[in-house]
Write a protein that binds this DNA or RNA. Structure first.
Length: 552
RNA sequence: GCGCCCGUAGCUCAGCGGAUAGAGCAAUUGACUACGGAUCAAUAGGCCGGGGGUUCAAAUCCCUCCGGGCGCACCA
């Protein structure tokens, strides 16, 4: 008996009662969503439907609740139904109905928890997209972890997902990068608006070893071009390598240059012009974005003839739509929240639906903390905190977990000392250890002759088992909610809850017989539960891109 | 001035309009001749930043004030 089955059964009961009382509203499963009461004494599942329907039906919530409870109590698998407080309906399942889930999970394996929220929907997730002018700094790293996890979550909901990296290889920042490399090579001071730091001289030196010609005897402009083309490729290779090491693999690396070379930018502007959303003023060409909700109009062609910044975005969005993506998500740092309005205005201008065809997720800043002090960074001075720094300090699993564990709406301090520790004050180890423990238990079970040849769900009646089964039952809903709200941290928090429930069960219910005890169906049945927990922990950690070791 | 995010236990943070607001860490006290003690049990710790409002019900929604972070270019 899953909560979904129970909801469906309850819906039938409630619909019948409402109809008899003359109710006219159409009820759906969403109206009878069950929640797990915090307090175990309130049963396994609770419904607030009586309080919601009391007013429209003109009855007191308690009376209505009693009426529903009387019928719900007759449902198969339901042990008891009570009415409590202002009109909560508290339902307890019998052990057999609740325990059946253990077997279901083992049988469904990797598929347990998956849903169809985005079945067949094409989704483009654009994230990181750091300019190839330096290593990925910590802000981009947050999105590397969260964006990749979100991609996995959407896939688990049936979405057809493309992970995309927008490679900004066009524009002034690249010029600055090239000039900085050249300056380093010529042992000149870094340009005023350029980049500094050890990686610049490193890349410059590598360019030298790769360039087949003689750099000394070509004009400075050509020298800069050499550093630009080779340097960008090297930097980009480094970025790809760090992402790969971090377990993030992009399906598409999209080059901004392509939009300019194919005339896509002009076409995008022309399309706005055709819509009457373009005007000329002060020698420049403007997008009248205020007509679509922006707070000021935006320059698409500057008075010097160059394209404004938004022009590339216009073309890029259209390009994604032409490639068939129904939903396009862009993940940006808090310093880019000002973009949201203008890009939504663009979406609307093109006749699409803002916040549906295009969504922009804004992630607040991440601070790294070491020895209680924030690790400050400055791109100019080259003291960036990079992906490599994080991985070096805490490893990939802890790094990803730390980044994905908090809501992106919150600024986060990541304590490198804490996350680098291999002890129980590190949450990722708490969860991984629980998973390793399920395997350890399974190994011991095998050597004691306990197998899964029998399953009697009614034996899973210990209090810790009832709690553990309840947590397992919630997983599909947590996953769905994480997808709907674009909040992978819910999966992380859930995995911690499950790990805790498992450890407590382990402490009071043995899977393997003690001493020369005989193997019973109790042991066999518990092995199913043990394996079910391992499976769900594996599924959760998999969605976070964090390893689920069998031994630690 | 305008906009986005945040303010919850000593710390780091969860919390879907529901019942007595939670977890981990830190503190105190316990549990190994028992499947891995990277664990578990227990104690203590809170005007959920302040004030209004909506609701049967508000940490959650709305308004307002205070505090913190980040933005408000013909830069990218």
């Amino acid at each position: 008996m899953n909560p979904a089955d129970l909801s469906a059964a309850l819906l039938t009961v409630v619909t019948g009662i409402a109809a008899r009382r003359g109710g006219t509203q159409q009820l759906t499963v969403d109206d009878v969503q069950l929640e797990r009461p915090r307090n175990r004494e309130h049963g396994d599942w609770a419904s607030n439907i009586a309080m919601k329907l009391a007013k429209p039906l003109g009855v007191s919530p308690r009376v209505l609740a009693e009426e529903i409870a009387a019928e719900a109590g007759k449902l198969p698998g339901v042990a008891s139904v009570d009415v409590a407080g202002p009109g909560f309906i508290n339902i307890s399942l019998d052990a057999a109905a609740a325990g059946a889930l253990a077997k279901t999970i083992v049988e469904q394996a990797d598929a347990y928890g998956a849903g169809d929220l985005y079945a067949g929907v094409t989704i483009n997730l654009e994230f990181v997209s750091a300019n190839p002018t330096g290593p990925i700094h910590i802000g981009g790293v947050r999105w590397a972890a969260v964006g990749d996890s979100l991609a996995r979550i959407f896939q688990a909901q049936g979405g057809i997902v493309t992970r995309e990296y927008y490679f900004n290889d066009h524009g002034l920042q690249i010029d600055r990068f090239a000039r900085s490399l050249l300056a380093s090579y010529l042992q000149e001071p870094a340009p005023e608006d350029g980049y500094g730091g050890a990686y610049i001289s490193d890349i410059a030196a590598r360019v030298m070893t790769l360039y087949p010609g003689d750099l000394f005897h070509i004009p400075r402009e050509e020298q800069q071009e050499v550093f630009r083309s080779i340097g960008v490729e090297l930097m980009f290779g480094d970025i790809k390598a760090s992402l790969h090491e971090f377990g993030v693999k992009f399906d598409v690396y999209f080059h901004e240059n392509e939009l300019h070379e194919t005339g896509a930018v002009e076409r995008a502007i022309q399309r706005l012009r055709d819509l009457g959303a373009i005007y000329e003023a002060d020698g420049a060409t403007w997008f009248r974005s205020t007509d679509y909700g922006d707070d000021k109009d935006r320059v698409v062609i500057k008075s010097d003839g160059e394209f404004g910044y938004i022009s590339g975005d216009l073309a890029y969005y259209l390009n994604k739509r032409e490639r068939g993506f129904e939903r396009n998500l862009i993940m940006l740092g808090a310093d880019h929240h000002g973009y949201v309005r203008r890009l939504m205005a663009m979406t609307k201008a093109f006749g699409d639906e803002p916040y549906v065809n295009l969504e922009i997720l804004i992630g607040q800043l991440v601070n790294l903390v070491r020895h209680g002090e924030p690790v400050r960074m400055s791109k100019r001075a080259g003291t960036v905190v990079t992906l490599e720094d994080l991985v070096e300090a805490v490893g990939v699993d802890a790094g990803r977990y730390a980044l994905v564990r908090s809501s992106i709406d919150s600024q986060v301090d990541i304590d490198l000392d804490l996350w680098g520790r291999k002890t129980n004050d590190n949450p990722v180890f708490y969860v991984q250890y629980a998973h390793a423990r399920t395997h350890s238990v399974a190994r011991n079970a095998a050597s004691s002759g306990v197998d899964r040849s029998a399953f009697d769900a009614s034996m899973l009646s210990h209090e810790t088992e009832s709690i553990l089964l309840g947590v397992l039952a919630e997983y599909p809903r947590v996953l769905r909610q994480a997808a709907e709200l674009r909040e992978p941290h819910r999966i992380a928090r859930y995995s911690e809850e499950l790990a805790g429930a498992y450890h407590r069960w382990y402490d009071s219910c043995r899977v393997t017989p003690l001493g020369d005890e005989a193997v019973t169906d109790m042991h066999r049945t518990r092995l199913w539960l043990n394996d079910a927990v391992g499976q769900v922990l594996r599924n959760s950690l998999g969605l976070l891109g964090v390893g689920a070791p069998e031994r630690m």
